Structure formats: structure tokens, C-alpha cells
Amino acid sequence: MLKSVKVRDYMTTDLVTFSPETDLFRAIDTLIEHRISGAPVVDGEGHLLGLLSESDCLKGILSGSYFEEAGGRVESVMTVVVETIDADADIIKAGEHFIQKHRRRLPVMDEGLLVGQISRRDILRAVKAYNHHGAPK
């Protein structure tokens, strides 16, 4: 019955997020401090605008240093085409997406707003919980 488990049941809701106006070096400090490889970029109402990854930061720094203008704002380097998953999607769908698309995590949306993030580790927690509660082994 693992298919009846929803993404919302295992997603992380305490997210580090950035605004598009966040200074790039401040964002890098935050990623390092929290030991994360990326974070969603949202507007004041919680609408997902993009994602900022370590790779985006490196590209921004390297491009900026070439022109002797390292830095800038998150909006100038963030990824704007973002794959997401609905909070009511089943956990199996999320797991299949991770395998097929080689993703580590997906922003979780509910009625157009960012409400969390689901990762491969969260899927493993769901499977483990399912197996510890009487599922065939």
C-alpha cells in the first residue's frame, strides 16, 4: 500500500529559500552554512521563481570574474525552468521521477505555492517506515 502514501507525508517543509534580490555571495554563505547544495527562489507570496544551485553559483562567479564583476543577485544566475511535483502525488511517482530524471530533490507545490521539498532520502524513509509497519519483507 505504499502507493497510497503522499509526497506531503514525507516532504521537508522547513526550507532555506532565497528571494531573487538576495546577494549572490550571501546566498553562497547560506548554502555553505546549512550544508545544502541548492535552495528554491521564491517571491514574497511563496510562488516558486527558480532554484539556485551550487552549479549556478559557480557559473555566476566564474562568469563575473571573467568580466571582473563577480557577485550580483540570485536572479541573475538562478535556474528558472524547474521541475516540481504536487504535494498529493504518490511517493512512488516521486521515486520514479528521481530514477528517470536523475534528480536528487524536487520542490513540492500545492495550489501554485511552494510548500516543501521531497528528496530521494525522504522516499527511502517512506519505504523504511512502510516495511517496519507490517509490510511483507
Rank of each mutant, 00 (worst) to 15 (best):
S55M: 12
S55R: 13
R104V: 13
P107H: 02
H97E: 15
A129K: 12
M1L: 11
V42L: 07
M1Q: 02
A89D: 10
Y66V: 15
V80R: 15
Y130D: 06
A87D: 07
S37Y: 04
T17A: 12
A94M: 02
K128G: 12
V82Y: 02
S63R: 08
R121W: 09
V82P: 03
E68C: 12
Y10C: 03
T13H: 07
L15D: 02
R35M: 12
H133K: 14
K3H: 14
G95R: 01
L48I: 01
V74K: 08
G38N: 04
D14P: 04
G116W: 00
H97A: 14
D122Q: 05
A89L: 03
L31A: 04
A70S: 02
L49S: 05
D90K: 00
I32T: 11
L114D: 09
L2Y: 03
R26C: 07
K128F: 13
D122K: 01
G46Y: 00
L106M: 04
L48C: 02
T84L: 07
A126F: 03
V16S: 06
S55E: 12
V81L: 14
V42E: 05
H102A: 14
S53C: 04
D9N: 08
V42H: 00
D110H: 09
L31K: 00
Q100G: 08
V127M: 09
R121E: 11
G116N: 07
E111L: 07
V81E: 14
E54C: 05
M109G: 08
D23N: 13
T17G: 10
Y130T: 06
G134T: 03
E111S: 09
F98K: 06
H102R: 15
L52W: 00
Y130N: 10
F67R: 15
I99T: 11
A126N: 04
L106C: 06
K101P: 10
V5S: 14
L114P: 03
I36S: 02
R125W: 09
G112Q: 08
T17W: 07
I92G: 07
L15K: 03
F18C: 12
G50S: 13
L2C: 05
R73E: 03
Q100P: 02
L58A: 11
Y10K: 05
L51M: 08
R104E: 13
V16A: 06
A39M: 09
T84Q: 10
F18P: 05
V127Y: 02
R8C: 13
F18S: 10
L2S: 05
R120K: 10
N131R: 15
D88G: 10
E68G: 12
L114Q: 03
H97K: 14
R73L: 07
Y10W: 11
Q117N: 09
T13A: 12
Q117D: 12
P20D: 06
L124S: 08
L52R: 04
I36F: 00
V81K: 14
T12S: 14
V80A: 14
G60P: 01
P20W: 04
V127L: 10
D14R: 11
G116I: 00
L106I: 01
P20M: 04
A126I: 00
K101F: 10
L58H: 03
S65I: 15
I32M: 06
R73S: 07
P20H: 06
L2R: 04
Y10M: 09
R105P: 08
M78F: 02
